[in-house]
Design a protein around this nucleic acid. Structure first.
Length: 549
RNA sequence: GCGCCCGUAGCUCAAUCGGAUAGAGCAACAGCCUUCUAAGCUGUAGGUUAGUGGUUCGAUUCCACUCGGGCGUACCA
């Protein structure tokens, strides 16, 4: 990448001048006049060297050994910035790289050989996924894609608590609906799950077993039937979004394997837990920001959710991943800290665990924004949203904002098939290119633009063409930085610029011209490269690349 | 009360470890289709980056406080 090149050139200059070695920061200026890449190294050296930044910058510039094929101009500017202008030849060479590497362009091997585990969705199978799950579902999909792009071997994992209250409650709810088929007056539990799907599960059981289960005291059959049915619905929803998990792991396995007991014993052996009021309490360190101790095993003998979560994270650490990612809504913002604290206090290195917290989502229907927390009873299924606005718009809208900002999901806007809908701006650019390529193939049979043979790259040079090539060449850097910060929305921001510059190019540069075959082929190459970048970007954020719209 | 997160154009949001004149889209206004998709392009207008103070060559970014919003603060998950 070009920054690596500049990095070494500047470093050599610093050595020649006997200037202290600094970590050199290379930025992309916002203003075109300030070049393509800029460094503030002279400003940061100023204090140490006790010289004016501009003088330092001049010395550095005098000692740069630059290849004019790559850097066409260097300027000293402002308070002491050194601005580099990249030569057009470099961008044209990069265009060829895109066409050669195709789907692989933008991918890197920065983390090749490393293993990552991404655990997300992880909704307990007490019912279908609903709107409140949407952000996490889509965010995780895109983050997994990003990690793969930089070389990680990614395991996609779904973890659920099948041993706790929620699943007990599911069993009771299904049983009650089953009994109501026999006796409509049978009482429904106060905090039971009220959705119609519970009735369907009960009906399925009744169809098979009739009333033979009416005196059940063990509800595990009802619970299991509910779990199976709900998982079918959840998986079907995930399928619609193109999401597949490699591993489904559950809480009860941790009991069977003795991992829960082992964790409890460890806490006790290390003197980190104590009994009080019949419960087992974990000592929480005030210095770590906790104000009081937390119960890890209730007086009833059941663990609180924290304990299995800790055992589960220990188990994942033991599996040997280089990176472990959890995605939670901000309603779990405090509890994950407790879990990590517990894991850490048992001597495990939690630095490999990265927790991504996303803020809550509101949904705008008309002019009103409606809160939709994951635990809200008024369930609006995610399936319904996918039906209503389409999988692409759902994916796009949930990913287009940074996870740490509140997201207002405008359902009407997502549904709208018009220029107001931001997802179409990107997809339209892709479809438009496909239209040009179709036209070229159908009506200009002599234009052999897909061949690997050399083309007249000297014909590329209009303002719009160069601007477009410049942004295309930034894709690899953009992927790396998005992956490093686990922020897929940056890819969308980037692709918007690509689409914008393509549309400008399109308006001002006629691609297909029967009178000018060489130029047409050169521009078709530009189109092919743009299409490739859009497609590669869409792949990451998880939306389709339509050929027509 | 305490903890975490957030506050940027009328609306929804960007802004690369602190960098040069804070950017897009939508909404508003004015233009552009006998030529490859007008789901597009061009232009205009829109800001004390919630507020006050601090740190420094330089702050939307870091620190302190104030105001406003979200989420937590269970022997629920």
């Amino acid at each position: 990448m070009i920054k690596t090149y500049l990095h070494s050139v500047i470093n050599n200059a610093l050595k020649k001048l006997n200037f202290p070695e600094k970590s050199i920061q290379l930025d992309n200026p916002k203003d075109e006049k300030h070049g393509d890449i800029t460094t503030n190294v002279a400003l940061t050296l100023s204090k140490e060297l006790k010289q004016k930044p501009r003088d330092i910058a001049q010395s550095i510039m005098d000692n740069l050994d630059l290849n004019p094929e790559i850097i066409s101009k260097v300027e000293l500017a402002g308070a002491g910035f050194i601005n580099f202008f990249i030569s057009d030849k470099y961008y044209i060479a990069e265009l060829l790289n895109i066409l050669t590497e195709k789907d692989k362009y933008g991918k890197s091997d920065d983390f090749t050989g490393k293993k990552a585990n991404l655990e997300w969705v992880s909704a307990n199978p007490t019912g279908p996924l609903h709107l409140g799950h949407g952000r996490q579902v889509c965010l995780g999909k895109a983050i997994a894609n990003l990690l793969e792009c930089v070389g990680y071997d990614v395991t996609r994992e779904y973890y659920y608590n099948d041993a706790g209250n929620q699943m007990e409650n599911l069993g009771k709810s299904v049983y009650a609906r089953y009994m109501q088929i026999i006796d409509p007056n049978f009482p429904f539990p106060e905090d039971g799950y009220v959705g119609d799907y519970i009735k369907q599960i009960a009906q399925l059981i009744y169809d098979e077993r009739k009333d033979s289960l009416k005196n059940s005291t063990d509800l595990s059959l009802f619970k299991k039937a509910g779990e199976n049915y709900n998982f079918k619905m959840i998986r079907s929803t995930l399928n619609k979004l193109g999401i597949h998990h490699d591993i489904f792991s559950n809480e009860s396995q941790l009991y069977t394997d003795g991992k829960i007991d082992k964790t409890i014993n460890e806490f006790i052996a290390r003197g980190l837990a104590y009994e009080k009021d019949g419960a087992l309490w974990l000592k929480m360190d005030e210095k770590a920001g906790f104000d009081k101790d937390k119960v890890i095993r209730k007086s009833t003998g059941e663990p609180t959710y924290r304990l299995p979560d800790m055992a589960y994270h220990i188990e994942k650490l033991n599996r040997g991943y280089d990176l472990i990612i959890d995605i939670f809504g901000s309603d779990h913002g405090d509890t994950y800290k407790e879990v990590l604290y517990g894991v850490q206090s048992l001597g495990y290195d939690t630095s490999k665990i990265k927790v991504i917290i996303h803020q809550m989502v509101t949904f705008k229907e008309g002019t009103e924004s409606v809160k939709m927390s994951k635990r809200s009873d008024k369930s609006y299924p995610l399936d319904g949203l996918i039906e209503e606005v389409g999988a692409d718009a759902v994916q796009f809208f949930f990913v287009m904002r940074g996870a740490n900002t509140h997201l207002d999901f405008d359902i009407a806007l997502a549904k709208e098939h018009s220029d107001k809908n931001p997802v179409y701006y990107l997809q339209y650019a892709h479809a438009r290119i496909c239209g040009i390529l179709r036209n070229a193939e159908d009506n200009f049979p002599g234009f052999d633009f897909r061949s690997e043979a050399a083309f007249s790259d000297g014909l590329i040079g209009t303002e719009e063409e160069i601007q477009l090539l410049k942004i295309l060449a930034k894709f690899p850097e953009e992927v790396s930085s998005s992956a490093a910060s686990f922020e897929p929305h940056k890819i969308i921001t980037y692709l918007n610029v690509v689409a914008e510059r393509f549309h400008k190019f399109y308006h001002n540069n006629r691609v297909l011209d029967a009178e000018n075959k060489e130029l047409s082929i050169a521009r078709l190459k530009v189109c092919l490269a743009t299409k490739q970048i859009l497609k590669n970007g869409f792949e990451i954020i998880g939306i389709s690349a339509p050929e027509r719209m």
